[in-house]
Each structure stands twice: as C-alpha cells, then as structure tokens.
Design a protein around this nucleic acid. Structure first.
Lengths: 211, 211, 211, 211
DNA sequence: CATGAATGAGGATTCATTCAT
DNA sequence: TATGAATGAATCCTCATTCAT
C-alpha cells in the first residue's frame, strides 16, 4: 500500500508539475503576445503537444480561470503576509503596499499583465471570476480598515469599501503605468514612495475619522 | 458650383452622420455583448450593410480607435470644463471628480465600458492608443497639480504624475465596481462623496507639501 | 414594387439554387465516400468555399436534416402518385412498389444510400428524424391498407401497421442488396417482379381477411 | 512442460475472457451512446486501460468486426436451431421467425442495435463484412426455401433469394420499429404473430409454386 | 455610395493510436 | 501483460475582409 500511495503521490506531483509547466508557459506567452494566441502557441511554449494541453485543462477558459485563481491567491497571500507583521496600522498598510510593488509588480510581471490586461473582457464567466477576485481583495482590505477604524455602521462599511477600492485602483493604475507600459520615471523606488504616501494620506483621514 | 459645394457639404454631413450612427451602434453592441461581436452585428445594429461599414471604417480596429479617441476627448472635455470654473484649487479638483461620475459614468456607461473593459488588450496598436490616452488624461491632471503646488522640479513632476495616476486609478476602479459591475452599495451619491473625500485627502498633502 | 419583388424572387431562386447545388454535391459525396467526409470535401464538390457552405446550412447536421426531409418527400410523393391512379387495390400497391424501384432505386441511388446507409446512427437528432420519416411512410401505407381492408379495430390497425412495416422492410433490404451493394442477380426487372409478388401474397391475405 | 502448457491454456482463457469482457462492454456502450464513443469509454466500461484495449484488438474497426462476426454467428445459430427441429416446412420457418424475435430482439437488444444501426456505414471494410454477413444469412434461408420448394433452376434460385431477402427485410424493420425505436404497439407477442403471418403468406405461394 | 454573398485563414477541440515504463 | 500520458492529424466552425453588382 505504501508503494501504491507512493506512486500516487509521485504521479500527482508529475501531473501538478506538468500543469504548472503549462501555466507558466501560458503566462509568459499571454504576457508577450496577448491572450489571443492559439492553444498551439501555448503548447509549443510548454514543450507539449496540443492534445497534451487538453489532458490538463478542459479548454482555454479553464486555463485562464486557474491562472487567475492562482494569481489571486498570490496577491492575497503577499498582502496578508505583509500586513500581518506587527506595527502601527498605517505602517502595516504601507508594508502591504510595498509588498504589492515588490512581490507582484517586480517579480510577477506576467501575472500582473494577466490580471490587469489580458483577462479583461475575455468572456462572461471569466469576468465573473475577476469580479469575485477583486471583491475578495477589496474585502480583505476593507475588513482591515474597519478593524482599525472601529466603524461598523452602514456608513463605516461603505467608507471602508470605497477606501479599499480606491487603494486598489491606485495600485493598479500605477502598476499598469510603470510596470506594464513601463512609461514615465524609471525610478520605481521613488514612484512607489509617492504612491504609498498618497495612500497614507487618503487613508489617514479615514482611519482617524473613526477615532 | 455653389450647388456642388452644397452637395459636398451635405455629403460630408451625411457621411459624418452615418459614421456617427455606426459608432453609436458599436458602442451599444460592444457594451452589451463584448468587443468580440462580429462586424455583422454592428452593421445590423447600425441599420447598414456589412459592406457599408467598410465605407466608413478601414477595419474593426479603426472603428475601435475612433471610438476610443472620441471617448478620450469627451472625458478630457468634461474634466477640463469642470476644472476650469473658478474656485479653490481643491474644490476644482473635486468638481472634476463629480463631473467624471455624473457625465461619464452616469451618462456614458457605454463609453466607460469600452474604455475600461472592452478595449483592453485588443491589439498592440489599440493598447498603444490607450496608453497615449491615459497619458494625456494624467498629464492634464498632473499639470493642474503642478500649477497649483508650484513645484516644478524633477521630484515635483514625479509627485504630480503619481498623484494624477492615483486619482485616475481610484476613479476607474470605483467606476468599474459601481457602474460596470454594479456591485455593492446602490447609493452612488454617497459612494461618490467618499471616493472624492479620499482623493481630497490624498491630494491635500501633495498640494500643501508645496506651500 | 414589381421590380423589387422581382429581385426578391430572383435572389430567393439564386439562394435556392445554391442550396440545391450544395445538397446535390453532398448527396454525391456522401454516397461515394460516406457521411464522414469533412465539410471541406462537400464544399469542394459543390464548387464553393467552406465559409460559403455555412451561408446555407447551420452545420453538417442541418444539411443532413434537409437532405433527409427532401428524400422523404420524394419517396412519399413517388409512392402516393403511383398509388393514386385508378385500379384494383392490389394493383395499386404493386404500382407503388414498381415506382419505388424505378423512381427511387433506379434514379436516386444517392438518396437511397443516404436514407438507408449514411444517415443511420449519425446523431440522436437525426435518428429522431429518421424515425418520424419512416413513421410517415409506413402510416401512409398502413392507412391505405386499412381503407381497403375496412378493418378499423385495434387489431386491424396493428395488422395494417405491421403489414406496412413489413412491406417497407422488404423493399429496403431488396433495394440495399441489389441497388446499394449491387449484389446478386443483375436482372433487376425480374428481382422487382419477385419481390412485388411476395408483397402481393403477404398483402393479399391481409386484405382478404377483412372481407 | 505440462506446467507451461497449463499456463498457456490458462492465459489463453484469460485472454479470451478479457476479450469477451471488452466485447460485452463495447456492445453495451455502443448501444447506449452510439458507435462514436471513444476507446476510452469502452475501456472504462470494460474495467481495463486504454492501452489494454489494444492488446486484444488491433483497432476500433477490429473490435467492430469481431462484434459483428459474433452477432452473425449467434443469429445464424438461433435460426438454424429453430429451423432444424422436425415439423412442417412452413411451421419450421415460423419457428425460426419466433426465434429471431425471442432470442435476438428480446435477449440481445445490444447486438440488434449494433447490427442494424451502429455498424451501418462505419467504414468500407465493415460495410463489406456486413454484406457478407447478410449474404450468409439470406443464403441459409434461400437454401432452405429451395430445398423445400425443390426448384433449382435459375428462376427458382432467384425467387428463393428474393424471398429470403424479403423475409429478412421484414424482420429487420419490424425489429427496428418495435425493439430499437420502441414505437407503436407495446404488445410484442401480437406484433410477432402478425409479422410472421405476413411471412407465411408471402412464403406460402413461393413454396407452393414449386409443387 | 450601398449591398451582402463569398472567401479562406485561423482557432478550438477530439480521439485513435503509440510507447516508455 | 498492463498502464495511461502523450501525440498530432483531422474536423468543425467563425469572422474580418473583399468585390461584383
């Protein structure tokens, strides 16, 4: 039985690695040539046959869904980890912002492009997934804001929700500008500082308003 | 000859009206069914033949380009007009924000969807156009910020640029959330207030920092 | 208006002729290479592009459906015409039998192959259509038998139904053998005579039983 | 050596049982989902791997061929056994007819569907096999008719051949109608009676003609 | 200017068959 | 013998674009 379980695990891993290999290739190809590339291109980039692709994904939309799920998990994890470390509330928000720029924009440009550009408007179902994903992310942040501000009334909730949306919107557009389009100032450290200063100020009064 | 010129003008107008008719139909159809709809659908919605479409637009991308240009002009105009009226700097920014929600999100949902969802990642050329468009918009705002703050050094420029990007990012995501996905609070007036309060706070220190 | 109607009619005809051209080509190709041929083969045989095919038929199944409908109408018409002429009941049945061999097997081998071989088991929907078609044909014959025999009780109905089915079964298998497989005796006139003699005898007692 | 032979025999048996297991599963699956199902479905139904399938059959067509052969043998055996028992010639034909309905239609619906629906038009080679199979079956019956009628001239042969074909055609269509489509009267006993009465009458004069 | 039938390249997906293990 | 992942040719269908009328 051990042997069989061992095999099982081994196969599961192989399967996972194959799947991961395709996902990585797809992210690369999507980022470079756009999501309109054919399955053949993805398969080629993943060193696999066209039929092989369909062994691991039901169809192109399924691949995109898994890619988005993964990206969503990564972003949430990066933000949550950075936010979890002890410190002043505002400092923790700021750390989370830095994490977004460092972990995601800096290290996962492919994922960023997928999330902000290539997956947009792909299909109704994918759009629904994007919506859920953004809701999770903004809910996470809105919860954090509410916990810090202590405001739990309808107004407090809406305020936290809007603040969370605003923060994400800022991060997104700044990321799109500097990391996807690679426009404007090349000094991303400074850009990062300014952007987070803007967040801090916007957030500051939201948090203080509750005190 | 007058007659001929008259005809000419008339034809130019007819041509313009035809073109406008197609563009309006396209915006409607794109917003409803996504940019993947065929030319046939657009032509049907515009009460024109498929061949007729190609008399007014070189191809689908050309249509999209013109649609985006138009939308860009409208947004700039709405913001510029609102900002131009006299008053305190911060109040003028706020008015521009209100104009975005009222004029664009409220009255031009089709254009909003096109700008933020359907045109994203369509093709390299369209993406280039989107980039230019966003640069114009953020440059407008950044200029205004710089004029008010008086800071014209490299740092001031970057600061203004980032602030402008941040403001647009916020407006975009809030618009996407409440006007495209139509999620969350139904009280858009209040959402608008909160969002603009956030902008005001973030902007406040940028402007004051220069004083 | 006459002009416009004229155009309309002309276009309808052109469209019909195009459609008919494809249907004729398809019957030929199906009979020769089997229904598994690709749309490309059908299109080539019909001197049309692949896209052109889809201008006239929703998909392959739609083509098959229309082909079967047409064949069904032809067979019913051939039998009905032959049966309608005056004469003794048995002689009229016999004439209908001759019509089947002459009009359908002799002149429309393609249609015969489609009906008895290529359309079999294509898809659930087509099988449903085949079922309806055979029911119509056997109902026609069963009605004729009942009218002649005068028996309208449950037993008479069943008897007529089974006799009609039997007749069709005979005609089909004889047709399959001699006209599709082209096996056995080459003297089809004589085969025809023998087969119809068999029908006459089987039918004779059914008809007389009622007297 | 005994040991080895024993093993050999055992393996042969295992091989046979494996093969039979696959054939049984295939008949079931073909009858239910149509012959278009993939090898994977058949393998799953037979509790075997895809690769395993190819240890016992060269390819899908080979499976179909063996399935048809088997079905042919069964039908011939059922008819021959029923016909072999002593009695009046006509009564023996009738018994064979009953055997067809009882043994084949009633007990082997899967085989019936395969023979009359799923194997039709599969490929040129399978069609050839079907042709041989039907020839054997009709030759068997035609021989029996000839032996009873005593007519051995060219005309007698043709007459017997056509009569045999007619009988099979009737049985087939009645079977298709009542046992495959499961349409019409639910009282299969009575249907069977009527159908065989029809055969008896048709056959009667063929047999008597020779006397 | 206007039409819409026609084109055909391109993309998604399936499935019989093979082969390394 | 047995497995099932891998292959890739084959097929269906769509849609931007053209062009004869």
């Amino acid at each position: 039985m051990h042997f069989v379980r061992g095999l099982d695990v081994k196969f599961r891993r192989m399967k996972d690695s194959r799947r991961g290999q395709i996902m990585a290739a797809a992210r690369r190809v999507f980022a470079e040539k756009g999501i309109a590339v054919g399955i053949a291109d993805i398969a080629r980039a993943a060193d696999i046959s066209v039929g092989g692709f369909y062994l691991y994904f039901q169809n192109k939309e399924d691949l995109l869904r898994q890619l988005l799920d993964e990206t969503g998990r990564e972003v949430r994890a990066a933000l949550a980890t950075a936010f979890a470390a002890p410190g002043e509330p505002l400092a923790r928000f700021e750390r989370a912002g830095h994490a977004f720029f460092r972990e995601i924009c800096g290290r996962r440009r492919d994922a960023l492009i997928l999330l902000l550009r290539e997956s947009v408007g792909f299909s109704a179902e994918v759009e629904e997934l994007r919506k859920r994903l953004f809701q999770q992310l903004t809910d996470d942040v809105a919860d954090a804001i509410r916990r810090v501000s202590g405001r739990n009334g309808r107004r407090g909730k809406r305020q936290a929700q809007v603040a969370a949306l605003s923060i994400f919107g800022m991060l997104e557009r700044v990321a799109y500008h500097y990391f996807i389009w690679e426009t404007g100032s090349k000094d991303r450290r400074k850009v990062e500082e300014e952007a987070l200063a803007f967040v801090r100020d916007g957030l500051g009064s939201v948090l203080l308003a509750g005190g």
